[in-house]
């Protein structure tokens, strides 16, 4: 572990205060477990302490944090220790029943689709921005987004509109599927 240049206290406090909820939210959505999300949360900020990446802007820092959450969550989910534990996916409480159904449906998507859905619908990134975050081609992200929405429609059995056009540059509008009972 390098001992060289560490981020100063003011920077770290700003990062935790400003982006702590975002990091935690992404970690919960990605791992499906609040306990795992706490581990990811702490790991991400400890890594931030030591990274020498020069952040050109707040958006750059935010993107770095999101990537760190995705990477650490994948490491955690793929770890031998994690695989040997019982499934700790929790019954997370939601204020609206349809939120719980949407959550469940999203969690049942393949991992790569889940990332895109999270970033698009929950964090408001456009497909071009998602592509940059995940290191994919924009066309790939759009294709995967369409497949993710088709899968969500199938899971929710409702009026989830998989044909909604995908903004490539502007912010996406938060969207919910409507489940039919």
């Amino acid at each position: 572990m390098k001992s060289a240049n560490l981020r100063d206290e003011a920077f770290m406090e700003h990062a935790i205060s400003e982006y702590g909820d975002l990091v935690y939210r992404m970690a919960v959505l990605h791992t499906g477990s609040r306990e795992d999300a706490k581990d990811v949360f702490q790991e991400v900020f400890l890594n931030l302490l030591q990274t020498d990446t020069p952040f050109a802007s707040e958006e750059h820092l935010k993107a770095w944090l999101l990537r760190a959450v995705l990477h650490r969550s994948r490491d955690l989910l793929g770890s031998a220790y994690r695989r040997h534990r019982a499934d700790l996916r929790e019954d997370l409480p939601f204020s609206e029943p349809e939120d719980a159904e949407l959550w469940d449906a999203v969690q049942r998507l393949p991992q790569m689709y889940r990332d895109i859905i999270h970033l698009y619908y929950f964090e408001g990134y456009a497909t071009g921005e998602i592509a940059a975050l995940l290191g994919k081609k924009p066309a790939t992200v759009r294709t995967q987004m369409r497949r993710a929405r088709q899968a969500l429609k199938k899971l929710l059995g409702g009026t989830f509109d998989e044909t909604e056009p995908l903004p490539q540059d502007g912010r996406a509008v938060s969207c919910r599927g409507t489940a039919q009972k």
């Binding site: 001992s3 702590g20 900020f45 302490l49 030591q50 939601f94 609206e96």
Partner: peptide, 28 residues
């Protein structure tokens, strides 16, 4: 839906402490 998930203060405080500990250890 996702707005319901917040990093509570105890988690943030615990993280701050771990960062302080790591800073001390790495600076020695």
């Amino acid at each position: 839906m996702a707005e319901q998930f917040h990093a509570e203060e105890p988690l943030k405080n615990e993280t701050r402490q771990k960062i302080a500990d790591a800073r001390l250890r790495l600076s020695q």
